[in-house]
Amino acid sequence: MERKKKIQWQPVLLLAPAILIVVLIIGYPVARAIVLSLYKYDMTNLQNVKFIGLQNYTDIFTKDDAFWPALKNTVLWVGVTVTAQLLLSLLLANILNKSFRGRGIVRSVVLIPWVTPCVLISLMWAWIFNGNYGVMNEILKSLHLIKENVAWIAQPNTALWVQIMAMIWQGIPFFTIMILAAMQSVPRELYESASVDGASSMKQYFYITIPGIASTIVSTVMIRLIWVFNNVDIVYTMTGGGPGYSSLTLSVYTYLQAQKSMKFGYGSAVAIIGAILMSIVIFIYLRITREQGGMIDK
């Protein structure tokens, strides 16, 4: 994608408002978080604030029982959620792109999970999967798939998966809308000439649609990765990261350390480690997809 040389003040002017708003409001708090991660800074003990260099970081890697399980859960939480959301939404967007009666209503209805506040989502799913009177147990029992009630949220091997399901459910509409919008910009002539050449609709999908919307997929996945990684509400409201560490993610761990235990230094260090790992993932991801996405230059 070669662009003609332009006079360079135009992009500066166009970008200025966005950069200004973001830096003015969020710059200082972010910088402060980075600095705090080098301190022992407990809100409960501000007389004892001291610079300890990288000790928070070394403690996390060597002494902290919760960190490694949290890291493992985060990989599952982000990886499974975003992949499933992408695949399911590609399917759904394809359906909604066809013309059928009641399409407008269906398109609006599938939006519901996305407009539902997270607090409600976690209450709703916790309610459905409740081990004592949840509707899921009743359904599975009547289908004879389980014999007795299962405590989905209180068991280490199922708790995280219930939360992943809730998160997938929440995120599909966003993906779908973005993909649906992108599909509109794929020129129709391409399909018409492909049809004339006798390409099957499956072929058309993989050779015309997917490349046509690649840039949107790349940026949407990107945003979703960060969003899911940062989400605290769903896990915290449902299990608080438990039982034990079995559904603890790095963001929830940060939240617990900073907001609940008031250890801002340690919490910041956990957050920074998460941010660094996440930016490595993003960097690699954008490298791999730069042909399709065109989001970054070579």
Binding site: A18, A33, V232, S268, A271, A275, I296
Partner: peptide, 25 residues
Amino acid sequence: RYRFRMRNALMYFFLLLYLVPSTLL
């Protein structure tokens, strides 16, 4: 539409700022 120095840096900047969880802000 424009290619300029620091463009990649800017693209990353917008993303990375948001990797710091709002709890700390």
